[in-house]
């Protein structure tokens, strides 16, 4: 018996850890381990590096767009070229400031338009492994962020906070299969649940054949559940097909928020919007 265990120790250990992992996974299907020290340590190590790399990439992109699109100039323009290079550099910095200003202004106007307190944050990393769709922001518990707070942009809902560390937080994006939002179609007022499909869209579930839904319909949050304020845009219906079960329709929704271009987001820290009893 002992010799059998010794001979197959690698396989037996692997199988034991497999079972342990499966058990952990089955009890943790909706979120991630909240207060595990290892996660805090990983976040503390990786988030400053992520922030630095993301900022550097932004700078490189600006330089690339400005410098490498210049047309070749003649010898008499060498001096002018030097002046242009210097001015371009100043201009780039100003342009980046203008773009940032524009985005922040939109964010501020949006923040003032919603009946909720909110905190702005920068996205420092996006995790797109397989069906997992999450993003990391540079605000955490020390900035008043808590689990299950809604994350939005002027274009629509981005997701909700699923993990909070002292200076960073993780957002579960709306396109992640674990994200479920109670929604209403703006035009016909029919209700359903929008769930991420793990790629780049959401699926609107529990809408039956008799309900009035069509391509182009805008879906908004219903306010039920207490996470997302009522009236925020989820996305637009882009596909309506007969479902496999002949009862519910298969509906695909394109998210309103531009999840591939996330730079700044708002985290709603206090949801003041009342839920209408007539809903």
């Amino acid at each position: 018996m002992v010799s059998f265990l010794k001979k197959h120790r690698v396989i037996l250990t692997s199988l034991a850890l497999c079972i342990l992992s499966l058990q952990i996974a089955s009890t943790n299907t909706k979120g991630i381990g909240g207060n595990v020290i290892a996660i805090k340590l990983i976040s503390a190590i990786t988030s400053p590096i992520q922030y630095t790399v993301t900022s550097t990439l932004g700078g490189i992109k600006t330089v690339w767009m400005s410098y490498f699109y210049l047309v070749n100039v003649s010898k008499e323009n060498v001096l002018l070229k030097n002046d242009i290079a210097r001015l371009m550099e100043e201009n780039n910095q100003l342009k980046e400031t203008v773009f940032l200003n524009k985005r922040l202004k939109e964010l501020l106007e949006f923040k003032q338009s919603i009946s909720a307190s909110a905190v702005a944050a920068d996205v420092i990393g996006i995790e797109n492994t397989g069906w997992i769709k999450t993003a990391t922001i540079n605000k955490g518990a020390s900035h008043g962020i808590k689990r299950d707070m809604a994350v939005v942009t002027p274009n629509g809902i981005v997701g909700r906070i699923i993990d909070v560390q002292p200076t960073t937080s993780k957002i579960l994006l709306v396109i992640d299969p674990r994200c479920n939002i109670d929604v209403i179609a703006q035009r016909s007022r029919i209700k359903g649940i929008a769930e991420g499909n793990g790629t780049d869209k959401l699926i609107l579930k529990y809408v039956n054949h008799s309900d009035d839904i069509q391509i182009g319909d805008i879906l908004i949050s219903s306010g039920l559940g207490g996470i997302f304020p009522k009236g925020l845009v989820i996305g637009e219906v882009v596909r309506v097909e007969k479902g496999d079960d002949n009862f519910f329709i298969y509906i695909e929704v394109k998210p309103g928020a531009e999840l591939r271009k996330l730079e700044e987001v708002l985290i709603i820290t206090e949801n003041k919007s009342p839920i209408s009893p007539l809903l």
């Binding site: 943790n28 991630i32 990983i42 997992i132 579960l172």
Partner: peptide, 26 residues
């Protein structure tokens, strides 16, 4: 575990699948 914790995935799922891969690869 690291992959799941970093990406915000279901903790334990990547450990399970990667251990299966390790067994097969070995």
């Amino acid at each position: 575990y690291l992959a799941d914790a970093f990406a915000g995935g279901i903790i334990g799922l990547s450990s399970f699948t990667l251990l299966l891969i390790f067994i097969l690869t070995s």
